[in-house]
Amino acid sequence: MDFQTLERLVAAPGQQPDFKGCVEAIPALTRLASTPQEPAYHGEGDVWTHTCMVVEAMVGGSDYERASAEERFVLFYSALLHDIAKPDTTVIDEVTGRIGQPGHSRRGSIDARILLWKAGVPFSLRETICRIIGVHQVPFWAFTGDRSGHTPEFLAHRLSWELPVWMLCAMATADMEGRLYESKQSVLDDIALFKALAEEEDCLYSAKAFPDDYTRVSYFRGARIHPAFSHYREEKGSDVVVMAGMPASGKNTWVEENLPTLPVVSFDDAREALGLAHGKNEGAVAHYAVDTAKSLLRSREAFVWNATHLSKQMRKKTLDLLYQYNASVRIVYLEQPERIILQRNARRDTSLRNQDIQRMLYRWEVPLPSEADVVEYRA
């Protein structure tokens, strides 16, 4: 499978998709046909039946018809891959027999990322697809119950910094149209309402405007402020560059070439200072690195935090600490093709094996533009 093959499979508006060709190009889709779904929400049956109905609904929709070729690629594969993780997340209650797939959206975004990365899909197209898959159900429940307590307005604002909200709404609409569900029309109405809200908030087709980055980051991190007015900043802390990317993606070289005079907080340096191999006593390594960072933050000194920061959870720990000290944060994300990553790692003097990197892929979440003051992608 390669990008050109995937491009050829994108159906024209109103055209019957070549599902046989899709399965041949993406063998992981074969598992969907044997994966059951909860009948109360999916009267049509298995995941593959649902997926085909969703893709047909997408291709027949007005948003798809108006979209550019690149946008159709994103919409087509968002629909085709939106439930790719259901086989691995299916849980059947032994007592009631009810079927659930908890976490399939988040896991699906990672599975799709690995698949599309290996196929050589351009970064911007791939990440838009993965971001849509990761939150494809949000318009279903934005008005009826976000567990985090966020308002629909907040969700629309934040999502607009992560993906085109109109595409997310097109995906949610196709997902609901492509099923047999008693309350389908009620959910479709909620999706339409969310889309109308985003348009009213000027973030359906572009990112929500903020007075400055500090206000935006404070708002997304939970400050109870109005996004239209600048948030007062009592003091400014360190300017911190947070590196992110897989091992052997070039982070050390980038830092040496672009920020040679700044102090560097590094887990690799911490391991070397402590005399530990990769994967050994990671708690002590983290403690050493955090103590180093805190010292720099207290003196408000600019520095680089150089680590993989591969998952959102890993980045959150770093970002929470930095913003606690009023730092300004610039995330620099680096990426290379799989072949280069594995070749480079095999040549390095490291205890990290290529098999370890392959396992790390299943925690791979590319930084979102909403996570920091500035997020740069060098892929």
Score class of each variant (00 low, 15 high):
156 A>M: 04
161 W>R: 05
164 P>D: 02
165 V>P: 09
167 M>W: 03
167 M>H: 09
168 L>C: 00
170 A>F: 04
170 A>W: 07
171 M>Y: 06
173 T>Q: 14
176 M>C: 13
179 R>C: 08
181 Y>R: 10
181 Y>M: 09
182 E>V: 12
186 S>V: 15
188 L>A: 07
188 L>D: 06
192 A>V: 11
194 F>R: 09
199 E>P: 00
203 C>S: 00
203 C>L: 06
203 C>K: 05
204 L>A: 13
205 Y>K: 14
208 K>W: 07
209 A>R: 15
214 Y>K: 10
215 T>N: 11
217 V>A: 01
217 V>N: 00
218 S>M: 11
218 S>Q: 11
219 Y>T: 10
221 R>L: 02
225 I>C: 10
225 I>N: 02
225 I>R: 04
226 H>Q: 14
227 P>Q: 06
230 S>W: 04
230 S>D: 12
232 Y>T: 15
232 Y>C: 12
236 K>Q: 15
236 K>T: 15
237 G>D: 00
238 S>W: 02
238 S>T: 01
239 D>Y: 13
240 V>F: 04
242 V>A: 03
244 A>C: 08
245 G>R: 01
245 G>Q: 07
246 M>C: 03
246 M>S: 05
247 P>A: 12
248 A>P: 09
248 A>M: 05
249 S>Q: 04
250 G>N: 10
251 K>P: 03
252 N>M: 13
252 N>V: 13
253 T>R: 14
255 V>C: 05
259 L>C: 11
261 T>I: 04
264 V>I: 03
265 V>P: 01
266 S>K: 03
266 S>M: 03
267 F>H: 12
268 D>A: 02
271 R>A: 00
271 R>F: 02
273 A>L: 02
274 L>F: 02
275 G>D: 06
277 A>L: 14
277 A>C: 11
279 G>C: 03
279 G>A: 02
280 K>E: 15
280 K>Q: 13
281 N>C: 06
286 A>P: 00
